[in-house]
Structures are given as structure tokens and as C-alpha cells.
Simulated assay, not measured.
Amino acid sequence: MKKLLFLLTFLLSLTAWSQEPELIEGKVLNSANDEPLENVNIVNLNSVRGATTTEDGSFKVRAAVNDTLYFSYLGFKSIRVRVTNDWLRFGDIKVKMTELGIALEEVVIRPVQLTGYIEVDAKLIPVYDDYRYRIEGIGSGYEGGDKSPGAVSKVLSSIFNPADFLYNVFGKRPKQMRKLRKMKEDDEIKNLLQSKYDRETLMAVLQLEKVDIDEILNKCNYSKNFITTANDLQILDAISDCYEEYRVLNRGKE
């Protein structure tokens, strides 16, 4: 009986050890010509760890069997690759990415035509009325989008009616939202998000569609201008701040 118990304990320990993340290696290539791709961004969607390819396309990232790695690179189709036992056993794996054919539309930039008269020019220069309101102890505040009394009442109603606001936004997505803090703790991921504006990495890690991200920010009272112009790191911070406020309010509710 003791031998059987020892054997079961050993097998369980071996299984747990085999599932521990290991440092795996690989190389990312252009599928068209097998040339290495430098600065490809890689994110482990399970452990929320990031990495970047070197000049020769090589990368190293910690992962366990069945983890999914997300590869993204400007001008190339993003792909997901599942980590297998063979990858861990044989090491260096080549990942090939396909270039996208992007047809850019013509963009017309119209500069502000100033006249030299202050009274006239003051009306021509665009003003962005994105105001943020803060209540001490509630978090980083809310962005009302305009300075009308309705903007303030919208913010206050959002804060004092969590069941109709924050709970409905985050209560359905507890697993995805728990990854927010991990993303903010990983320097590789933060550097990646700082230079991106397409929301792709956020969508992949949080398992959300772009429309869901826009809805969250909108319900957290961020302006349309912020939602459309902020980089992905700013969007991550905004969602994270709003989620922390939700957690505080939800604890009080419970």
C-alpha cells in the first residue's frame, strides 16, 4: 500500500513538473523568402509573458505544453501557435508569417488657415473638450467628453449605480480581466502596446472583440477622441483603472 501511494505521489509530481513553463526557443521568418523578421512581438496568451525577436529572427519565451503564443508584426498577418511536446523536445522551431497586401487610401490633410486676427483665428482652431472628473477615493476619475452639466451627472450616476454600470461591464468577464494586472507587470508587453494602435494584442489576450473594448471605454466615460487616438498601452491603463474601480465598488456592494 505504501509503495502504491509513493508511486502515485511520484507520478503526480512528475505531471506537475512537466507542466511547468520552460524556456523555449524559435525563429520567425517571412514565408515569402525565408528571411528572418526582427522585432516580431510574441505574447504567451496563457501566462501573459512577452518576448521580441532579435536581428536573426530568434526568440526565447517561457511556455508550457498547450500554451498559445500570439505573433504580431506590422504588415504581416498575426498568427497563434500552440506549444507542443515536440517543440519542447526538439527545441528550435521555425514560425513563418505571411505579409499582408495593404492598399492605403489617400489622406488629405487640411491645415488650419489662420487670418492673423485673434478674434477670428480663435474660432478656427479646433478645441477638444475632453474633461476628466475625479472623486477622491474612487480612483483615477472619469472622462465626461464635454463640460455641460449632463456630463457631470452622467459620471455621478455611473459611480453610484454600479449594478447598472461597472458590474454589467466587468461582471461577465472575470477571467479576462484578471489578466490585466499581468499585462501591466510585463515590460515586454508594455513596450509592445506603447507602439501599437490596432488593439489586436489586447483583443487576443483579453478574448474581446474591438467593439467590446470600445463599449467598455465608452461606459467608463472615456471620450470618443480618446478611444480612437490612444495607443494600446493607454487603452490597457484605462480599462485597468476602470476595473479596479469596479472591484472596489463591488466589494462594497457585497
Score class of each variant (00 low, 15 high):
Asp67Ile: 04
Asn66Glu: 14
Ala51Gly: 03
Glu106Met: 09
Gly26Asn: 06
Glu105Met: 12
Lys96Trp: 05
Asn85Val: 13
Val40Glu: 01
Gly145Arg: 02
Gly144Lys: 07
Leu74Asn: 12
Phe71Glu: 03
Ser72Ile: 12
Ile109Asp: 08
Val61Ser: 02
Thr98Ala: 14
Gly150Asp: 12
Val28Ile: 09
Glu25Phe: 11
Val108His: 11
Pro149Ala: 04
Gly144Gln: 08
Leu124Thr: 04
Asp86Tyr: 10
Lys94Thr: 09
Asp34Arg: 15
Asn46Ala: 13
Ile42Thr: 04
Phe90Asn: 15
Gly150Thr: 12
Thr84Ser: 13
Thr84Phe: 06
Ala63Met: 07
Glu136Asp: 11
Asn41Asp: 00
Leu114Pro: 01
Val112Trp: 01
Gly91Thr: 08
Gly141Ser: 02
Gln113Tyr: 00
Val40Tyr: 02
Asp121Thr: 01
Tyr73Cys: 13
Leu74Lys: 15
Val112Gly: 01
Asp121Ala: 02
Gly137Arg: 03
Phe90Glu: 15
Val81Phe: 10
Arg132His: 06
Gly26Tyr: 06
Ile109His: 10
Lys123Ile: 01
Thr115Lys: 07
Leu45Tyr: 07
Tyr117Phe: 13
Val43Gly: 05
Thr54His: 10
Asn33Val: 02
Asn33Pro: 08
Asn66Arg: 14
Lys154Met: 12
Ser72Pro: 01
Leu100Thr: 12
Leu37Gln: 07
Ser31Met: 09
Ile159Thr: 01
Asn33Leu: 06
Asn30Ile: 02
Val43Leu: 04
Glu106Thr: 13
Val155Pro: 00
Val28Gln: 05
Ser148Leu: 03
Ser58Glu: 09
Val108Tyr: 09
Val95Pro: 02
Gly150Lys: 14
Thr52Val: 14
Thr54Lys: 13
Ile138Trp: 03
Asp130Pro: 00
Ser78Gln: 11
Thr53Ile: 06
Thr53Ser: 09
Gly57Arg: 03
Arg49Leu: 12
Gly144Asn: 07
Leu100Trp: 10
Glu119Met: 09
Asp146Lys: 09
Trp87Tyr: 09
Ile118Pro: 08
Val83Tyr: 04
Leu45Met: 07
Val152Ile: 13
Ala103Asn: 15
Ile159Cys: 02
Ile102Asp: 08
Asp86Phe: 09
Gly50Lys: 01
Ala64Lys: 11
Val81Thr: 08
Ile42Ala: 01
Glu35Asp: 14
Asn41Lys: 12
Val40Trp: 01
Thr54Ala: 13
Ile118Val: 14
Gly137Thr: 00
Ile118Gly: 03
Arg89Asn: 10
Ile109Thr: 11
Thr53Asn: 07
Arg132Ser: 06
Tyr142Asn: 06
Asn30Phe: 03
Gly144Ile: 04
Ser78Ile: 08
Glu136Asn: 11
Ile135Val: 10
Phe59Leu: 04
Gly145Gln: 01
Val95Gly: 04
Ser78Ala: 15
Val127Thr: 06
Asp130Cys: 00
Thr115Pro: 04
Val83Met: 05
Val127Leu: 05
Asn30Cys: 05
Lys147Thr: 00
Gly91Ser: 07
Val127Cys: 00
Ile93Ala: 13
Lys77Gly: 07
Asp130Ser: 05
Phe59Val: 03
Phe160Val: 09
Glu35Trp: 11
Phe59Cys: 03
Tyr73Gln: 12
Glu136Ser: 12
Arg89His: 10
Asn66Ile: 09
Val28Cys: 07
Phe76Glu: 01
Gly139Phe: 08
Ser157Arg: 13
Gly137Gln: 00
Ala63Thr: 07
Lys154Arg: 15
Arg49Met: 08
Gly75Asp: 05
Val65Leu: 11
Asn66Phe: 14
Leu156Phe: 12
Lys60Ala: 05
Leu156Val: 11
